[in-house]
Write a protein that binds this DNA or RNA. Structure first.
Length: 279
DNA sequence: CTGCGGTCCTGAAGGC
DNA sequence: TGCCTTCAGGACCGCA
């Protein structure tokens, strides 16, 4: 499930490959995933790719913005030759290695015959064309606005569990289930703690932990654990799944104290923690 | 404001 | 082997 590190990894990769390319045509195979008019993209050149939290924004030369949310199972795949597109390394359940495949929902063709494929097995994701960039007011977790003061302000007014608040995109952007779990382990804070109960020392520690974990995940190009279909635009997997702290590590020893990692449900989500060192 | 459960959707995993 | 049920999960929505 693409979270901030995965989306950022894809953004960096695509930024190198599709910036400057001119859009020739679109093939919208699954209409429900496309919002707006695909005609608004045709003939336009890609100026840049931006990211806020888990949302991509492709800036077009005609003043429009293409925004993309991959949600659970979305993938953005790039092929230089759309007439004969085949990826290496792509996870088997993402359909076949050939593109397009059964999970291909939208294809953006460029004038040089390369193409961008929006694949999405579960079809929760979306792509939309807008005339202005839409983004929530909350700070992206790797932005300058993501400060200790902001966290303190958010936490002091709610009794909700700290993990639920970290994943609330209205409060801060980019943290999903994997990195909420791992950041709380890094900060030695129990996920079920009421946000309001955190001390200033703990908030500082958590703030640092969030940034460290997200940066580490970007370093490893995101997480492609067994449940995740996340792949880079060339079909390559990320490697953070080999560096997970607690996520999906139920029964395995804590990396700090060797205590067995436990699992619980919190806000309907799988939650993993060390019962000894997370207080 | 808060939690809770349902919804979207598919395929993996488990039961028998 | 194969059918059937259950479940995961980001965001959102209605309800208590």
């Amino acid at each position: 499930m693409p979270e901030l590190p995965e989306v950022e990894t894809i953004r960096r990769s695509l930024s190198r490959t599709i910036t400057g390319k001119k859009i020739k045509s679109l093939d919208v195979r699954t209409k429900k995933l496309f919002i707006g008019s695909s005609d608004d993209m045709i003939g336009s050149t890609i100026i840049s790719l931006k990211r806020w939290a888990k949302i991509f924004t492709i800036v077009l030369s005609n003043g429009r913005f293409v925004q993309i949310h991959l949600k659970m199972s979305g993938e953005l795949l790039y092929a230089k030759d759309s007439k004969n597109a085949e990826l290496k390394n792509i996870l088997p359940r993402a359909g076949s290695k050939k593109l397009p495949n059964k999970h291909t929902r939208i294809i953006v063709f460029f004038t040089d015959n390369s193409a961008l494929y929006f694949n999405d097995l579960r079809m929760f994701g979306w792509m939309k064309v807008t005339t202005k960039e839409e983004k929530p007011k909350s700070p992206d977790a790797l932005s300058r606005e993501f400060t200790v003061d902001h966290l303190q302000h958010v936490f002091c007014s709610t009794k909700r569990s700290i993990k639920t608040v970290l994943m609330d995109q209205e409060k801060m952007g980019g943290i999903g289930n994997i990195y909420a779990n791992d950041a709380l382990w890094q900060a030695k804070i129990h996920p079920a703690r009421a946000a309001i109960s955190l001390t200033i020392t703990e908030i500082k520690k958590l703030h640092r932990a969030i940034i460290e974990i997200l940066k580490e995940a970007i370093k490893y190009k995101g997480s492609s654990a067994k449940d995740e279909m996340y792949v880079l635009p060339n079909g390559e997997k990320g490697q953070y799944q080999n560096h997970l702290k607690v996520y999906h590590r139920t029964g395995s020893p804590c990396l700090r104290c060797k205590t067995k990692i436990e699992a619980m449900r919190l806000g309907g989500r799988g939650t993993f923690f060390c019962p000894k060192c997370q207080k």
